[in-house]
């Protein structure tokens, strides 16, 4: 049977993989993809938690809270990625580099 342990473990693995990639890869686009991956992990966890707390949520008259949250998150991340990619485009245009180490405008 599928237990919550399984779902959460999957989510944790995906999250860790995304985080490691976002931290260690140097191609800007790949970093964005890794962030996307971290987010997918979060969605999995949200849906899992939603199922886990379903009884309580129904008792509190807030059913489907976790799934609604996941939906909203999907949209937010889509928007975030669109903006992120736009920033990436203009960055590459100006700096002519996809390396994340070159994008250090915030440096003192």
């Amino acid at each position: 049977m599928i237990t919550h342990d399984h779902v959460l473990a999957l989510s944790a693995l995906l999250f860790c993989a995304g985080a490691v990639g976002a931290l260690l890869r140097r191609n800007l686009i790949v970093v964005l993809m890794c962030i996307e991956l971290m987010f997918a992990a979060v969605v999995v966890a949200l849906v899992g938690f939603d199922r886990m707390w379903a009884a309580r949520a129904v008792a509190d008259s807030v059913p489907m809270e976790g799934r609604v949250f996941a939906m909203i998150g999907i949209a937010v991340v889509a928007a975030q990625l669109a903006v992120g990619l736009a920033i990436l485009v203009s960055l590459v245009r100006n700096r002519d580099s996809m390396d994340i180490e070159d994008a250090r405008l915030l440096r003192w």
Binding site: L23, R104, L106, R107
Partner: peptide
């Protein structure tokens, strides 16, 4: 304090985590 602002995005991400 300025060394906490290296401009490297991945370091920010690390700190955030």
């Amino acid at each position: 304090l300025k060394h906490t602002e290296p401009g490297t995005i991945q370091l920010y991400l690390a700190l955030m985590l």
